[in-house]
Design a protein around this nucleic acid. Structure first.
Lengths: 252, 252
DNA sequence: CGCTGTGTTGAATGCCGTCAACGTCGGTGG
DNA sequence: CCACCGACGTTGACGGCATTCAACACAGCG
């Protein structure tokens, strides 16, 4: 985990945050997105960025807004949300520390296709969109990593379409939980806990169901000893058992 | 439409087809994917490719196979299909003439994430995967177009997730039909026809439902004068009426 | 100490998947 | 050319899963 230590607080920062002088290359060196770069290249990349804090439950950018920046999450967890014309919302994915996000520029868009909400207090690097082409071409490894990320997200999204097409709600929720603990899990005694606050409603919006159904399923699983619930908290205590449900091979 | 005329037939070609000498740059000049390139650049790009024919209902590549090539569809329509572990299949999208496909290389994959099946007889340009990095960096416009395409597909896929999360089957099928006629429609008297053979089962696999439900819906819409059906054929006769259904604003 | 957001649980409705049977078209081979 | 056969399509009946409606419990916070 990348801590915000030494990061000057920029409370109530405007979207895009405030410029923070003296970003240290140790923040990003060794991370996959910046692999294989020499120290002075890292400095050059950081020279175009500033760091910003985003308080829990604030929007980092909004769906439909002009894509003025792209981001790299240093610390925290972000919820990417899409709103339908009718006002319903769907959670597209969660972003973890170490991932690029808001890279509309990379795919030639000029507005953000979704909103990004800080699930907890977050710290991110922010670059102006105009720097994308420059960075991607000057540091091919960086661009390649970004496009690989994009490809992975496309594939994950298609997996989700497949799940929604072929599986029952119970299996989809189980799959979603397993994905969450794999991508954002934190070991605690007795299981793996999802590392950020997540409500039944959130899980419902990830799986295309209702909070009622999610609540019922979690209650049942808790009785069966597969998970432990809590307010905006889920701990998986028997990942293997949950996998059986996810794959529809449960006994009953 | 780009015709296969003058294209030497390469029946029973292996995946990847047979090399066809003398590809003419007129095949691709003026197309968005190759916009802004000088004639000799087009020739250079074509020098690395060969053209191949793929007979209707044959596989151009298979999910999980090593990604040895990437493709540009000159003529025809391609069905991109993903298979679940349990043997069910889901149609990820259709590819039309003028689109790149099989670009696993662009996102750093070494196997194809889905299968590509020729929905009709097709003609495609084929490049070895190893040429991707070269082409994308030497001709930035080409790379940018490919990544834009990728981004559009990601967004379409996410739209589909939203539809499956928030809409009823009836609306999803209506949306799917509208998308098909918009992307692959051919004007006929009395409406717009989907330009390739498509069965009720295919539509079901696009929308996460069953052929029975699709059949019932199409029958109903035919009685209401919105579409005309046929064996592996659908013609939309009242796109506006269908849009009302798609958006859930139908009278009854 | 009340208010709001979150979570739980019961009951009823209904969409749509499943099962079943039949009809129809088109290609193929005799 | 015609008969056959398999793929595709239609329609009815039934039932189950999950949403919807409703009521209540509980926690955190001002």
């Amino acid at each position: 985990m990348i801590g915000p230590e030494g990061m000057p607080a920029a409370d109530a920062a405007p979207a895009g945050g405030e410029t923070v002088p003296g970003l240290d290359r140790s923040l990003i060196e060794g991370l996959p997105a910046f692999a294989g770069m020499r120290p002075q290249e890292l400095d050059r990349i950081l020279a175009g960025a500033h760091a910003a804090r985003f308080a829990k439950e604030t929007a980092i950018f909004e769906q439909g807004a002009e894509a003025t920046s792209f981001f790299f999450l240093l610390d925290g967890h972000i919820r990417v949300v899409r709103n339908t014309a009718e006002g319903q919302q769907v959670i597209a994915r969660y972003i973890n520390a170490g991932e690029l996000f808001g890279i509309a520029a990379a795919i030639g868009r000029d507005t953000y296709p979704a909103s990004a909400i800080a699930a907890v207090d977050c710290v991110a690097l922010v670059w102006p969109t105009g720097l994308w082409a420059d960075l991607a071409s000057r540091y091919p490894g960086f661009g390649a990593h970004a496009y690989r990320t994009l490809g992975q997200r496309l594939q994950e999204t298609q997996n989700r379409v497949m799940e929604m097409s072929t599986e029952q709600v119970e299996q989809r929720v189980a799959h979603a939980l397993l994905r969450l603990v794999r991508q954002s899990g934190r070991k605690v005694e007795g299981g793996i806990e999802i590392d950020f606050p997540i409500s039944r409603q959130d899980i419902a919006e990830m799986t295309g169901t209702t909070l009622h159904t999610v609540s019922r399923l979690l209650s049942g699983w808790e009785n069966a000893g597969l998970v432990r619930g809590g307010r905006q908290k889920v701990t998986v205590t028997d990942a293997h058992g949950l996998l059986l449900i996810a794959e529809g091979r449960r006994k009953k």
